[in-house]
């Protein structure tokens, strides 16, 4: 890379950095994913329009991811009674295992909507480095929480924060 290219890249980065901290509108990216029936949809259509959406990135070969979704599943009825929240599971299984996703989800009997991100386009747009990774999006399409990795018990933290956020909404 010559100095011109470096200068160009640096300037671009600087311009972008200057714009940090100003945006407060919808920032959840609009990327094409597939639903479990293999139909293409825009990622914004996954969202719960009048409450919170928890988006959990997982894969059929990712043990901690499955553990996270199982543990949320155990509490899900309780959650949805107390908070306006929907959990969706976005699989990053690629061509090797994407055909197994439907079969796998069915055996787990998860109540979550499941989507396929077979070439990791949404994962990349959200700058997710590794899975499991979960994000929470509010009703305005604003990302309000991100969490990398999963440890058993994280689901309680997540729930407590959802309750807290909903309380704040009610006050405003």
């Amino acid at each position: 890379m010559n100095y011109k290219e470096k200068l160009a890249a640096c300037t671009l980065v600087c311009m972008l950095l200057v714009s940090i901290g100003v945006a407060q509108e919808a920032n959840f990216p609009s990327i094409t994913v597939r639903n479990i029936e293999n139909k293409q949809i825009e990622s914004s259509e996954m969202l719960n329009k009048d409450g919170y959406t928890v988006i959990s990135f997982w894969a059929t070969w990712c043990k901690p991811c499955i553990r996270e979704l199982n543990n949320i599943n155990d509490l899900y009825e309780e959650w949805t009674e107390e908070v306006n929240v929907e959990v969706v599971a976005v699989s990053i299984d690629d061509a090797r295992s994407s055909a197994k996703v439907g079969v796998f989800v069915n055996s787990k009997d998860w109540p979550f909507d499941v989507y396929l991100d077979v070439n990791s386009d949404l994962k990349r747009a959200l700058n997710i480095n590794n899975i499991p990774h979960s994000i929470v999006v509010d009703k305005n399409g604003q990302i309000v929480r991100e969490h990398s990795g999963y440890l058993p018990g994280d689901e309680y933290e997540l729930y407590d924060e959802l309750v807290e956020m909903q309380k704040k909404d009610a006050q405003n």
Binding site: L16, S19, A23, A125
Partner: peptide, 30 residues
Amino acid sequence: SNRTLQALFLLGFVAFSTHAQNKKGVLSGG
């Protein structure tokens, strides 16, 4: 090389200047 960079600059500039007006953009990184 120069043309792509110009394009990037142009877009960056458009985004930057219009966003300074009223609409807001989204910056993300990793």
